[in-house]
Amino acid sequence: MNQSTAAPVLSARALSKTYRMGEVTVRALRDVDLELRAGELLVLLGASGSGKSTLLNILGGLDVATSGTVQYREHRLDQFDGDGLTEYRREHVGFVFQFYNLIPSLTARENVALVTDIASDAMSPDEALALVGLESRLDHFPSQLSGGEQQRVAIARAVAKRPDLLFCDEPTGALDAQTGKLVLNVLDKVNRDTGTTIAIITHNAAIGGLGDTVLRMSSGEIVERNTNKQRASVDDIQW
């Protein structure tokens, strides 16, 4: 795949975000420019507090920027109201969170169904769970699953609706290395097999090798951009 010639699916220009924490004003993002192309796997690196989660939340329509523009295909996300952003997330975006955020009262299959119920062109929950290797754990509740399994359910839930964009916030952050690799393998496979555009944020630099593009953030700014000619295999990376 040649991402550099593909059209950008999502582009951000001069994004800034400031918020108040008690009596302190925090500038979480300063003039960030970014493009995501169809089928690309983007890795966003940075220490905690560097602004990467804030950036991902804005790109995913979970939060709004203080200034700047975000364009998704022909739509200006920064001009959307809450309902517009809901529709954007509903139709086009999948999320994987560090702490999975599964609904504890629903089984693996039902957690995925929560999303497929409202999507127009979804795979079946069983299919999505098979994609992440959990076909044998369909009827388990989150409390009966290991951390890695829970995260894979979360990934299945995110990809089941065949999103254009998949945003993963520290998907391996709560997992040990072995389980983390399993999860990364699933994300890599989803990207290669379905062509889903993925953005992964992590503070783990080793994961950078997996991406087509690797950005490094610090103090709310992108301080480094790299392109991998050849994406590394999950088995090759070490941490």
Binding site: T86, R90, I103, L114, V115, I118, R157
Partner: peptide, 15 residues
């Protein structure tokens, strides 16, 4: 938190 998760997946406010 659960309300926020539902919203993140694109559930509408009225849903």
């Amino acid at each position: 938190t659960e309300i926020a998760v539902l919203k993140a997946f694109g559930y509408r406010n009225r849903e």
